[in-house]
């Protein structure tokens, strides 16, 4: 048993005579730069589940609105500009702005990289 322990000690000593290699600062700096670049790339390129849900919701609502377009009064810019604030289109315009804002704001907030935290 003692002999085995002694042998193992000898082997360990031999193995430990292998000196450690010390990486150069340039090597480490290159790694830092590449890792940072990949993290930023991954963050911008990757869509979260929330983004996908919003995108699907946005597309489906726009589709429904388009399909039912015939039931809604048509919006003409000229007409709107000629009308005073209280017109028969006001409610429709407000509805469009509200739905559009409701769908696009969270989508933009989650997609834009500036809102994802970290240093930019």
């Amino acid at each position: 048993m003692n002999k085995l322990g002694h042998e193992e000690e000898k082997i360990a000593k031999f193995l430990m005579s292998y000196p450690d290699a010390i990486p150069s600062p340039q090597e480490k700096a290159r790694t830092v730069r590449r890792v940072e670049r990949e993290i930023v790339k991954g963050r911008v390129g990757r869509m979260s589940t929330l983004d996908i849900i919003f995108a699907l919701l946005f597309v489906s609502v726009m589709l429904v609105l388009t399909l039912f377009n015939g039931m809604l009064p048509s919006i003409q810019v000229g007409q709107i500009l000629n009308q005073s604030y209280q017109t028969e289109f006001t409610h429709d315009i407000l509805l469009y702005i509200f739905i559009g804002g409701l769908l696009t704001t969270p989508l933009l907030l989650t997609i834009l990289p500036v809102n994802r935290g970290g240093n930019h």
């Binding site: 290699a21 990486p23 480490k28 890792v35 940072e36 993290i39 935290g117 970290g118």
Partner: peptide, 17 residues
């Protein structure tokens, strides 16, 4: 994980060798 420069530098410095 957020790509913080200092954190990347520290972890690379710690584990690279």
């Amino acid at each position: 994980q957020k790509g913080d420069h200092r954190a990347v530098e520290i972890l690379v410095d710690e584990y690279y060798p």
